[in-house]
Amino acid sequence: MVVTDIPTKIVYERPEALDPRVTHYCPGCTHGVAHRLVAEALDEMGEVENTIGVASVGCSVFAYNYFNIDFVEAAHGRAPAMATGIKRVLPDRLVFTYQGDGDLASIGMGEIVGAASRGEQITVIFINNATYGMTGGQMAPTSLPGQVTSSSPTGRDVTRQGHPIQTAELLSTLTGSSYIVRRSLHNFRETRRAKKAIRTAFEVQKQGLGFSLVELLSNCPTNWGMSAVESRDWIEERMLAFYPLGDYKVSSAVADIKI
């Protein structure tokens, strides 16, 4: 017997904010997941036509190709400054940056600290994969002690090459920041929590509650020299210890947000 009257229900589809095209990201890379989470949040909030994104320099330099929203492309590290300029003249739009760890935590440290300390009403999606992906896997400000990269071939020696920067912890010390959390994309459970954090961060901005940043522990199978599965295990086994997940700054007004 052929059953023809099974009711259909769409349980999963491409968010309106995402462009239906194949990305340039490597197989297994979590950039695509992060993009999707941002797009879902904008869809749910009905903000697709009211949002301006600021892409940065790194693997996500072409992020603007994958979103159906207005975008500008910043110089390396300067996305928070560019977002500040846009938000100040268009205060009723949602403005977000999408930055990697080399961009945000090294060359752009001045701009991110400036934006956070001003309590700039922008949202920052911060991808931390402990490497410079676009340029071929060099040591990043976030590379772990002992981590082998193309510019720390014997492993990061903290006596010579310094210690990794814990961005969420650092920015949470600033009075101007309102919502600073770290999440991870290495499994489904954490990915769902990441989604909720991104949605919350955009709500913070929409309600004018201040500066919001979501740090996302991410992978780089290509430059880490691992399979996608191995790379996710590496996040869990190595990165979580140095970059604990959690809410580092939730201002009292933000704590009242219900999603």
Binding site: V72, G85, V89
Partner: peptide
Amino acid sequence: PFVQAESELGAINMVYGAACTGKRV
């Protein structure tokens, strides 16, 4: 809007962002 930026790098890139909206900056 008036912003005293964190540096000249910050200032010029704020101008860059605001200029992208077509306003006089």
